[in-house]
């Protein structure tokens, strides 16, 4: 997403092992080059730290969505059972939400989970640009099998650093 229209040439280096990839990412960054993207077939542990990525805040978003769900559930049960049409159901107290609340616990819980889970996943799809029929984001189809790709803007001396770091294939585009 960072590089949109400017035609800066990029260099793509393929690696064939996740441990080599991690040390390569560290070497490339130590040599002063900026990595724009890394494509891997599975979550490589420690890669986000090696690349210097910030921690994701999606768990916090899920917590907020859960609070929203709880609020919706409280409003729904209060309006329907207490405010709009209170009824005598098995003698349960219907004049005050707090007194009737124990019977609503399952609903409060389910709606909290429902909102947290679904809205988090929607957020996840949107911020990653994932939707049905989207074009594949990875430039090389081998990176969903067993290859790992580092993508970065072309620069002087970069190819040597990549070769030394263990890249098995380097392409400029």
């Amino acid at each position: 997403m960072a590089h949109t229209t400017e035609p800066t040439p990029v260099v793509r280096a393929l690696y064939h092992d996740d441990d080599v990839l991690i040390s390569a990412v560290k070497e490339i960054r130590a040599a002063g080059y900026k990595i724009s993207e890394v494509y891997t077939p599975f979550p490589v542990h420690g890669l986000d730290k090696a690349m210097g990525l910030k921690e994701t805040r999606i768990a916090m978003a899920a917590f907020m969505y859960g609070l929203l769900g709880l609020t919706v559930a409280v409003t729904l049960t209060w309006y329907m059972m207490i405010s709009d049409w209170p009824q005598n159901i098995g003698g349960k107290p219907n004049y005050n939400w707090g007194m009737n609340m124990p019977a609503f616990v399952p609903i409060l819980f389910e709606l909290t989970v429902f909102f947290a889970a679904h809205l988090m996943v929607w957020t996840y799809l949107v911020i990653n640009g994932l939707y049905p029929g989207a074009d594949a984001q990875n430039p090389d189809p081998r990176t969903t099998d067993d290859y790992f790709m580092v993508e970065l803007p072309a620069a002087d001396g970069l190819v040597d650093v990549l070769k030394k770091s263990g890249a098995v294939e380097i392409a400029e585009a």
Binding site: D48, A59, A62, Y124, P132, A136, T144
Partner: peptide, 22 residues
Amino acid sequence: LSFGWGGKAKAWQRFEEVSLVL
């Protein structure tokens, strides 16, 4: 079906967090 998935590092980071929270 694959929604355009490309295995970007940030996407995987979020993937793991989402899996854990779910």
